[in-house]
């Protein structure tokens, strides 16, 4: 190796070391920024069960959408007087479904998925049934809990 070659390889080494070092130092900064931007999980505090409505507010054969934590839930009172709670969030891409009492289906206006009274996905792009919730009625108060 001539003195000139040595000089070149020393310079090469230096610039590579510098580029490498800077790239490595940038990584923790990027990590910090992404961590900062990610929402903390604690803020979405979730209650296991909640009082959502009075039984008297429900009409037979129609659905009412109530708030459970931050989620929308459809309450449905059947002709036999039984109350059922299904998530009102379409399992396709998350629009709120609409109950069509004449056809007895939940219809999603976004891409046309349909669910029957049990929450089963019967047509359209929805991949899963609507999530069911447990219903307890205590002195006319409807209490919903996660299953």
């Amino acid at each position: 190796m001539t003195a000139q070659d040595k000089e070149i390889s020393r310079r090469n080494f230096l610039s590579q070391a510098l580029t490498g070092w800077i790239s490595i130092s940038v990584l923790p900064v990027l990590y910090g920024m992404v961590e900062y931007a990610l929402p903390s999980k604690i803020r979405d505090r979730i209650l296991e069960s909640m009082h959502v409505a009075k039984e008297a507010d429900l009409l037979v054969g129609s659905a009412k959408i109530v708030k459970f934590n931050k989620q929308a839930i459809a309450l449905l009172k059947s002709e036999q007087g039984q109350v059922r709670a299904l998530s009102a969030v379409c399992t396709h891409l998350g629009c709120i479904v609409q109950y069509q009492s004449d056809r007895k289906v939940f219809h999603c206006n976004c891409h046309g998925s349909e669910f029957d009274l049990e929450g089963r996905n019967i047509s359209g792009p929805a991949p899963r049934p609507l999530q069911p919730f447990k219903v307890d009625i205590k002195e006319g108060d409807i209490i919903i809990s996660r299953i």
Binding site: I65, V66, C95, I96, V97, Q98, C108, N109, H111
Partner: peptide, 25 residues
């Protein structure tokens, strides 16, 4: 946020291709 999505809801024209693809698959 707690009302059903309105009937006939559609995105802007430049996302309609994607929208229609989502509907037919």
């Amino acid at each position: 946020p707690f009302a059903s999505a309105p009937v006939g809801i559609k995105p802007e024209w430049y996302f309609l291709t994607l929208y229609q693809t989502l509907r037919i698959v």
